[in-house]
């Protein structure tokens, strides 16, 4: 019974969430994104340089991964 109640709550919550998405309006309009499009706002402007520095750290530390940035197909690393 408890499991069924949880499922119903989950479905209702999901419906409300998705319903909200359908009315979601971009809070930053395309014509307001000039600053974000400035090259100085890029996560990494130069691919070789960024890769080289990442490589230096990965070769000397126990940590690794998640140095890429969402978008642009950088799904690896």
């Amino acid at each position: 019974m408890q499991k069924r109640t949880s499922s119903v709550i989950l479905v209702v919550a999901a419906a409300l969430f998705l319903g909200a998405c359908s009315n979601l309006q971009p809070w930053v309009k395309p014509y307001e994104r000039d600053r974000l499009a400035d090259p100085i706002m890029s996560w990494e402007r130069d691919a070789i340089s960024g890769a080289y520095l990442d490589h230096i750290y990965e070769s000397r530390e126990g940590s690794r991964g998640a140095t890429g940035t969402a978008g642009g197909g950088c799904g690896c690393n």
Binding site: L36, D54, C74
Partner: peptide, 16 residues
């Protein structure tokens, strides 16, 4: 893993 890591970082990084 070095090749994998360096290779990953070579892919383009976009803000949006």
């Amino acid at each position: 893993l070095a090749a994998l890591l360096i290779f990953g970082a070579l892919l383009p990084h976009r803000a949006f």
